[in-house]
Nucleic acid binder design. Structure first.
Lengths: 177, 177
DNA sequence: CCGGGCATGTAACGCGTTACATGATTCG
DNA sequence: CGAATCATGTAACGCGTTACATGCCCGG
């Protein structure tokens, strides 16, 4: 089974919004998709070069931003229609908590505090982001809000879980912090 | 900044429960940590070989299961104490929904249905798992329950989000399915 | 005796990150 | 004029997956 990169999809998607330089593509992915996607320079530039060679993107001249061609537009739709391949799970926090007895109860509490604070900060971020996105209504806005909503739900779940878990550790016999 | 693998940690952690062959380590990771961690054969065997060379694990003879040495025990605690490095986010579902206008409303609905069903199935799985783990009380049980609880919270959040989102798409002007 | 599970590895490959190198432009 | 930002790339490396190769042992 071939494992295919989804970098191409992310780059084409970014360019479908508006023409951009490679640098701007990276910024767009970091700032707009950053909550659920990431790409590094070392991926973006070679991908753009390959896309240009295949005629999916074009630059009027070397200084101009890349823009989607008709074939690139088609390619984007094809890639979007492919099933999303899930990355294998790798949650370092869970790995540590699972072996929490080896790590010690106090350290586990610290990890959970950290997780709670992270979730709170993220939730605030999403709330601000939602306001910013909702302000300007484009045909794309409803879909962007879907992904923000997912972030909010996830952050709230993480928050509740961390607090449940801190309570559960408190109820545990043994050294209290 | 060095990016360090956490495979070593997962393998040492598995062996901290009981001595195991490489094959059993893989099964344990798949069946017990599977909800938040994954390793493949191609990682496990070389890691075991390296750990053996460093004296962190030992095999009485070539057919026997690996067991932790005192130094391996120490190594495990050191690795557990290191901060969990988060893998960069890569959520193919969100990527597709974000560009949902290009993909089409009907296809988005299909993705969300799929997500809802997945979340429901997972939730049921966690409930069963919780019962199984809670049945046998060991000092490790409370920590295992923490990770199961995280799974439950996450699955419930995904479920609620998918249903919210389906409703939001229904409210959208445009082609209804 | 044969199929399936147990068991141990290795080789090849692709993906992705990090670090390095370089230059233009802009702004204080 | 010097620092920061914009901009484009390349090289090296590590991680992880997949596929391949091999053999043992046990139950039907």
């Amino acid at each position: 089974m071939v494992r295919r990169s989804q970098t191409e999809l992310a780059v084409l998607g970014a360019l479908s919004v508006q023409p951009m330089t490679g640098y701007a593509v990276r910024e767009a992915i970091r700032d707009v998709l950053g909550h659920f996607w990431s790409e590094s320079f070392g991926q973006i530039y070679p991908t753009l070069a390959a896309l240009e060679e295949q005629g999916h993107v074009r630059r009027p001249d070397r200084a101009a931003p890349y823009e989607l061609t008709a074939s690139g537009q088609r390619r984007l739709r094809d890639l979007l229609a492919e099933p999303a391949q899930k990355t294998p799970p790798r949650n370092g926090l869970m790995l540590r908590l699972f072996f929490g007895r080896q790590l010690g109860q106090a350290a586990c509490r610290a990890l959970l505090h950290q997780a709670r604070d992270d979730a709170e900060r993220q939730l605030a971020e999403y709330t601000g982001l939602r306001a910013a996105v909702a302000a300007e209504a484009t045909p794309d806005t409803p879909y962007a809000l879907l992904t923000i909503s997912a972030g909010e739900h996830t952050a709230r779940a993480a928050l509740a879980w961390a607090e449940d878990s801190l309570a559960a550790l408190d109820a545990l016999p043994g050294d209290q912090p």
